[in-house]
């Protein structure tokens, strides 16, 4: 359907205006706000102990969540793709669930189980292990929210890979671990990298679930996103903008990196596959 140049230009203009008004312009204002006084705002923010603590806490939580979710994600992907067991279809559906649950509901659900009056929370606190209103709760909430990200990257690649090479390795005497390290891991390497990067971006930015479980105690359980909210409401917009800019630049860099890596991925097979299709009519004509 070739639209006329005028229609084409009009559609292009509508899309550009829409995206600039909704995303481009507002984002540029915050970037400008962060640099309004040059680098001074950043210097002031980064000497504030609460800000430093919040950034460190966010980084620590993100690293822990990435580690936990990568191990769990790769492990469960291998099990779901390679093995048959009762309830597999149900497990598959459940693994995607965290993506469609509201962050606030995630927080609520964790409080109901691990809170002081929760199912396990009382017993855990009696044995000296506080989950809710403490860092472990923040890690749990973030891990919950990010749970499917690694799995959804790894499962399609593992399915595609098949078992031929793994079987060959095993038949030649490789141990389970050797097969995994030399055959499986190199093949799923990029999927794992994508999953890790997406998890990292999401973990740095989690807000709702963390707000519910952390208690938001400045200098103890206040993560960077919670600090942004509090400082904005306390009319310290400079600090809020500076921390927001730091968080956003890391997250956006992660997502942009994945997008570009992936479009390079897709370019190869797609051009190859369309080639025969355009050739087909000429053969038919002849």
């Amino acid at each position: 359907m070739d639209s006329s140049p005028w229609v084409r230009r009009a559609l292009r203009a509508v899309v550009v205006v829409y995206l600039v008004l909704l995303v481009g312009w507002p984002v540029s204002l915050v970037v400008r706000g962060a640099f309004a006084d040059g680098l001074e705002t950043f210097q002031r923010a980064l000497t504030d102990p609460s800000v430093v603590f919040a950034l460190q806490l966010t980084a620590a939580v993100a690293v822990q969540v990435v580690l936990i979710n990568t191990v769990f994600g790769v492990g469960i992907s291998m099990l779901v793709v390679r093995y048959d067991f009762p309830g597999k279809a149900l497990l598959n559906a459940l693994l995607d669930l965290p993506l469609s649950v509201s962050p606030i509901v995630v927080g609520l659900s964790l409080v109901l189980v691990y809170g002081k009056n929760g199912w396990f929370g009382g017993a855990l606190e009696d044995s000296g292990f506080q989950v809710i209103f403490a860092p472990p709760g923040i890690v749990l909430a973030t891990a919950f929210v990010c749970l499917p990200l690694v799995i959804r990257e790894v499962v399609p690649v593992l399915t595609e890979l098949g078992t031929d090479e793994e079987l060959a390795a095993t038949s030649l005497g490789a141990s389970w671990f050797q097969t995994f390290r030399r055959i499986t891991l190199p093949a799923i390497k990029w999927a794992v990298v994508y999953g890790v990067v997406l998890t990292l971006a999401r973990a740095l930015g989690e807000f709702g679930a963390v707000k519910v479980v952390s208690g938001n105690f400045e200098g103890r359980t206040q993560t960077s996103t919670l600090l942004v909210e509090q400082r904005y409401q306390d009319f310290e917009q400079g600090t809020a903008y500076a921390v927001a800019f730091l968080l956003a630049s890391v997250s956006v860099a992660c997502i942009v990196a994945v997008t570009f890596l992936r479009s390079d991925d897709a370019a190869g097979p797609r051009t190859r596959r369309t080639a025969p299709r355009t050739a087909a009519p000429t053969e038919a004509d002849a």
Partner: peptide, 25 residues
């Protein structure tokens, strides 16, 4: 660039998204 603009809402922490919208609206 438009492709990147579309991915930004995915990437931005939600609290920052609120901040960003407040800056213009």
């Amino acid at each position: 660039l438009l492709e990147v603009l579309i991915d930004i809402p995915f990437a931005l922490p939600t609290i920052v998204a609120g901040l960003v919208l407040l800056a213009l609206y």
